[in-house]
Write a protein that binds this DNA or RNA. Structure first.
Length: 518
RNA sequence: GCUGGGUUCGUAUAACGGUUAGUACUCAAGAUUCUCAAUCUUGCAAUAGGAGUUCGAUUCUCCUACCCAGUACCA
């Protein structure tokens, strides 16, 4: 029977979501939409010790910023849903609020002989690990050791009863079958086989906070929420055999989701996975949104650094997936149409900050002048500039191809709004010479007299005037630009003059003369 | 260490077992322009190594090397 596609993104609110996590969410979302299914958010907060305030809100805000909109689990206000409704039938979607659900499943596994109670204290287990290490071995809690440890398999039933009743010092462990080959299929990696002898009796229920571990909660919730595909990070691949075995133990093998394990995002240089430190060191964000931790340290975010969400999503999508064509620029709609898991790369992808900027540049130049003017206006205001909207539009049209970020348009074109406050020293040395600026002063005067109108007319007048006198075009023009823009490099002189106007241009020449000497 | 996963230009990637191994980013050169940027053109640059299967291997198998992950009462 064909089931409706249902996938979930299940972050744990232990900090800000990093871009690898966003990519996992994105692939889930794309897969769901491509297959006409549901994308569900579930918060896996079963680790009460690592809970970070604000992390859950951050994660959801980040997804919404990217345009990754959940169908289920999060309401229109961006809140995780706690009360079931028609749209959110499986609420609550926060595992800490689902606590009562899990206990009976743990007990079910014990009843069926697939799990047992273990009473070993953390100290005892540490001791076992230490001893094993001392003799050059690794301690594993499994069929070779469980017989000599304190659990419901070794202790007399009365003692087990007593310990369960009198203490809270117990866990539930999965009883890993002996010498059994678990045969698994991963959508991305293909067939994988693992012998259970290399696996351990994983804790399914923690006494520490009276909560299930990831493994139990995850399988139970995926089953209850009718998840059809689990698309998650590679760090879960080693747990896959346990998860298969759990589905089997519960008798849910027939509705077990298919699994797809995504490779990790790697740091741009050297080896290892992308971490917060790489971003700080190399000057690019690793987080979608800015984040300030408990120590007050702030990490950059793509949003705050000026990336468009469309560009961010686009670059993330192509990090580990390709459409099979040479198209590189994709809207979310196009991504949904093109996405497929069998085009996902097996190997980890090194993140390339240069390419990230390139994507943003492409998106910036795709925007209309109106949009860009609207985006630039707040930047202008921040810098104390109040400009006519029509004028801003003209500026934007001229400088958009020189910018990667909206802020760049200000950096590159601020002299179109305010007169230069300083002059680039190197250019002054090179071009502010008597032989040049005397000509510039003359041109300035004549320009006023002729007052040509429009970019073409200004250009023709200037070039004509210089050419007629056989002056060196480059030297004079650069000297003029230095006076108008404060730098010898920048927009064409005709563009600058026609935008700021001849009166302002002549005023700037006069000011340059006063400032630089003549 | 053990277990699992991975390996095509610097980076991201393409190539039903048959291609001069393609594309994009970066970088370099040239064209253009009053400069810079943009643009256009050109260029640099890769199948980790070794066996095997095959008429033929980037592609399939094995070994080695290297990288990554897991090895928690974390997810």
């Amino acid at each position: 029977m064909e089931r409706r596609t249902r996938v979930r993104f299940a972050p744990s609110p232990t900090g800000p979501l990093h871009m690898g996590g966003v990519r996992t969410a994105l692939y889930n979302y794309l897969y769901a939409k491509k297959n006409g299914g549901d994308f569900i958010i579930r918060i896996e907060d079963t680790d009460s010790h690592r809970f970070v305030p604000g992390a859950e809100e951050y994660i959801i805000e980040a997804l919404l910023w990217c345009g990754i909109i959940p169908d289920e689990g999060v309401d229109a206000d961006g809140k995780v849903v706690s009360v079931p409704s028609e749209r959110h039938p499986h609420a609550p979607y926060r595992q800490s609020e689902r606590k009562p659900i899990y206990r009976k499943y743990a007990e079910q596994l014990i009843a069926s002989g697939n799990a047992y109670y273990a009473f070993d204290t953390p100290e005892e287990l540490d001791e076992c690990r230490r001893k094993a290490e001392a003799s050059g071995q690794t301690f594993i809690y499994n069929q070779t050791t469980r017989g000599s440890l304190r659990n419901s398999l070794t202790l007399p039933p009365e003692e087990v009863e007593r310990l369960l009743a009198e203490t809270t010092g117990w866990t539930v462990r999965f009883k890993m079958p002996e010498n059994t080959v678990v045969a698994m299929d991963d959508i991305i990696r293909g067939h994988i086989e693992v012998n259970t002898n290399t696996l351990d009796d994983k804790v399914l229920w923690k006494r520490a906070d009276e909560l299930p571990t990831y493994h139990l909660a995850n399988i139970v919730d995926d089953h209850l929420m009718e998840i059809t595909e689990v698309i998650r990070g590679e760090e879960w691949l080693p747990s896959l055999p346990l998860h298969y075995l759990l589905y089997e133990a519960f008798g849910w093998k027939d509705t077990m989701p298919r699994f797809a394990h995504l490779s990790l995002l790697l740091k741009p240089v050297g080896n290892g996975k992308l971490s917060k430190r790489d971003g700080d060191k190399m000057g690019f964000p690793v987080f979608p949104l800015q984040w300030t931790n408990a120590e007050g340290e702030t990490s950059h975010g793509y949003r705050e650094d000026g990336y468009f969400p469309e560009a961010f999503v686009n670059l993330l999508a192509l990090l580990g997936w390709n459409p099979g064509t040479e198209q590189e620029i994709f809207s979310m709609e196009e991504l949904i149409g093109a996405f497929s898991l069998d085009k996902v790369q097996k190997a980890g992808a090194k993140f390339n900050p240069d390419k990230a900027k390139w994507f943003n540049k492409e998106y910036l130049r795709m925007k209309s002048d109106e949009e860009l003017a609207a985006l630039l206006t707040p930047v202008l205001e921040k810098n104390g500039v109040k400009a006519d909207p029509a004028y801003v539009r003209k500026v934007v049209a001229l400088v958009k191809e020189r910018a990667v970020f909206v802020e760049d348009m200000w950096t590159v074109a601020q002299y179109l709004f305010i007169a230069p406050a300083s002059y680039v020293e190197k250019d002054v040395e090179k071009f502010w010479k008597e032989e040049n600026y005397s000509k510039v002063l003359e041109i300035s005067e004549k320009l006023q007299e002729a007052s040509p109108s429009g970019k073409e007319a200004v250009g023709e007048f200037l070039e004509g005037y210089i050419r007629e006198r056989e002056w060196p075009m480059g030297k004079v023009m650069n000297c003029l630009r230095l006076a108008l823009a404060g730098s010898a490099s920048g927009l064409g002189i005709a563009d600058i003059v026609s935008l700021i106007g001849i009166p302002e241009a002549t005023a700037r020449v006069a000011r340059a003369r006063a400032a630089l000497g003549a």
